[in-house]
Design a protein around this nucleic acid. Structure first.
Lengths: 222, 222
DNA sequence: CCGGCAAAAATTGTCGACAGTAGTGCAATC
DNA sequence: GATTGCACTACTGTCGACAATTTTTGCCGG
């Protein structure tokens, strides 16, 4: 197959495209944690041979979304509560660093963007639109870590976020939780706007720490 | 080749073994940053076909040691000073978390081990044995992050350490630097032994921060 | 009816070969 | 003599097939 439509998208090799698609499917929940992923199935799905698919799976293994067991196959990674808790602790210090850096370097435009995110989330809460709230929440966090001026930090943080999506995606958001969480967002942004690195670091750290508390408090529904 | 000697080592698939060997060769400096890695060369070196080798390279790419450019090949990753600085900042907050956790959970045996490392380094300095000092330094750091009770933290920290070895391995250690660094080690261990998480976190953070200062102060010899 | 054993099916691991692309050097032309 | 175009080379990308292992299935005996 010399000229397939999937090939035309440039600067992305075939294994990379396959990797992104498998990742999308996993995060969407089409494969559940613990499920086995059959290579032949992927062959049929993508119409390529097994070579590129195996390369994509190796890459996904390194990013922590799947697990390879020799001669047994690949499985969607299953996160225990303890592992998720560990990830939250690491995520917290990374996010604190992001907040600290943001407080030191944020431009007025960036601060305005941050306030925009928080306001949109306020409105989503008022409308009771959980979907929009979660979108805004992710956008705010992503904006902070990608604008902190440290790509290594951003990459590690986003990788953790991705892996954490494997843990109990049934993340029911109560209205009061959303309100409390967005209050914390406002405090974080105030600290950044005041260019107060210490306060930014502590508010960001606490934000993730309380999110962890909320998550760990929910009964195990798996 | 049904029964090759390399195959007998268990619980490690062939791509994993190849990956470790390539990694070892890169970190040893046999391939320098920016060098191109030829697949055919690896085929001759390992005696396998290109399939397992390509899988190993994909995995190494995810761990940040090499870079793949479509249709061009793979290259040993080249770290700029800015990227190294970013890694040090992330490493600092991770190490601070490790120190905090260690202060909360370290057993008397672990504290004794820590003191043993620091003492061995003191002796290495007295002997002027830079090699032994560096070994002890790595052993101490590794011990702390792997005994902090957070495998996610350990994995990320060790991954950063590995990548940082691509940056100016000509890390000349002056005797006064080693003394100052090991003084910091003693302070870190004291904080852990006192089970003082805050002091442990700050001493660990500062230890990496000053290491970064020292590294960035050295003239660029690349 | 159940457990263990053996053959068969399915799946992963590996390989050699072919296709396509980037880089190189030569040659012809201005 | 410099430059542009072209063939050549070497490499990466992909594929289909074979080998080895695991899992399933069917059978037999208890």
């Amino acid at each position: 197959m010399p000229t397939n439509a999937i090939e035309l998208l440039k600067s992305h090799s075939l294994p990379m495209l396959i990797e992104e698609e498998i990742q999308r499917v996993i995060l969407k929940g089409e494969y559940a944690p613990g499920d086995r992923i059959n290579e032949k199935e992927l062959v049929l799905r993508f119409g390529t041979s097994r070579g590129p698919i195996r390369e994509a799976l190796r890459s996904l293994e390194s990013s922590g979304l799947i697990e390879q067991i020799p001669n047994r196959g690949v499985f969607v990674r299953k996160l225990s509560a303890a592992e998720a808790a560990n990830m939250y602790d690491v995520r917290a210090v990374l996010f604190a660093l992001a907040g600290r850096l943001m407080a030191m370097r944020a431009t007025p435009e960036e601060i305005a963007r941050l306030r925009g995110f928080a306001q949109a989330m306020d409105e989503a809460i008022a409308r009771g639109d959980v979907e929009a709230y979660l979108r805004g929440n992710f956008a705010l966090h992503e904006f902070i870590v990608t604008h902190a001026g440290n790509p290594v930090l951003a990459s590690q943080y986003l990788s953790l976020i991705k892996q954490l999506r494997l843990y109990r995606t049934r993340n029911l958001m109560l209205p009061e939780s959303m309100r409390a969480s967005n209050d914390e967002h406002h405090e974080m942004i105030d600290a950044i706007a005041a260019h107060d690195p210490e306060r930014a670091a502590s508010t960001h750290l606490n934000h993730v720490a309380t999110a962890k508390q909320r998550l760990m408090a929910t009964p195990n529904i798996a």
